[in-house]
């Protein structure tokens, strides 16, 4: 079996090497991916048609917003998949009192965390809100926000974190995030455009059709952030307690 694996790796490696021989040279500005019609369109026209200076976000949330919607769904599936496989609804084993040693970390760690947590959360919200103008966006901001709750659970114990962000609430947040994204697309459908065609929303948003695209990117980024935050925390709490949600690390 090992020999077979080695042969397979060798063959794939040879294929990979042989493919590089007619790749565009490293950093070639005239290669198809950098200089093709589609890339040129993104580079030259993005700001004109969407009023968003960050073209990465424009590609992600507008031109290919349909992909990003499904990427958010992927995160959602990962979260509910972990619950579906791991969650133990029978409750905690009564012979062990988990809550007793669920006090989190020591004094120093708690104090440090209570100092930096607000800043982490503010920065996370900034990353979400500013995603369409500078690097950032819903995924990154959502992960930071989720990490802040994980830090809370690590420092003060999972039961404290769960009082703020209960299991029910995580599920609602995750669903609401997707609902914002998909619902925004459906709103475009209802106003007579294609799915996710933000430009038809200019009738209900201030500004023209280009500005509507810019605002809509913010809206969908917020939706992504909701889902990512909730799923990050849900994954952590399920994985760290073997699905019992009754004891922190």
């Amino acid at each position: 079996m090992k020999v077979f694996g080695l042969v397979a790796v060798f063959v794939v490696g040879l294929l990979l090497l042989s493919a590089t021989q007619d790749f565009p040279s490293w950093g070639n500005p005239r290669s198809a991916a950098s200089d093709g019609e589609v890339s040129s369109f993104y580079i030259e026209k993005t700001e004109a048609v969407t009023k968003v200076p960050n073209m990465v976000t424009a590609v992600l949330a507008d031109f290919r917003g349909y992909d990003t919607m499904f990427e958010t769904v992927v995160i959602f599936i990962a979260g509910i998949g972990i619950i579906a496989v791991l969650r133990n609804f029978e409750g905690s084993d009564s012979s062990i009192d988990y809550d007793n040693d669920d006090n989190g970390a020591g004094l120093l760690a708690r104090f440090t965390c209570s100092l930096i947590l607000p800043f982490i959360q503010i920065f996370a919200l900034y990353v979400v809100a500013h995603g369409h103008h500078s690097p950032g966006g819903g995924f990154q901001g959502g992960v930071m926000l989720g990490a802040s709750y994980i830090l809370l659970a690590l420092a003060f114990g999972l039961s404290k974190a769960k009082r703020i962000f209960s299991e029910r609430r995580t599920m609602i947040f995750a669903v609401v995030g997707i609902f914002i994204y998909v619902g925004w697309g459906v709103l475009c459908l209802l106003l007579g455009g294609e799915f996710l065609n933000y430009s038809v929303l200019d009738s209900i948003l201030p500004g023209d059709a280009m500005m509507a695209r810019s605002y809509s990117m913010l809206v969908v980024e917020i939706g992504v952030a909701f889902t990512v935050t909730a799923i990050m925390f849900s994954m952590y709490s399920n994985l760290s307690t073997r699905g019992r949600l009754s004891k922190g690390l």
Binding site: G36, V38, F63, E194, F195
Partner: peptide, 18 residues
């Protein structure tokens, strides 16, 4: 043919959306 986001093939006839 259903173009997401209403993006017509604007890059000289190439699709810019999905």
């Amino acid at each position: 043919r259903y173009r997401m986001g209403g993006w017509e093939p604007e890059a000289n006839g190439y699709e810019v959306g999905i």
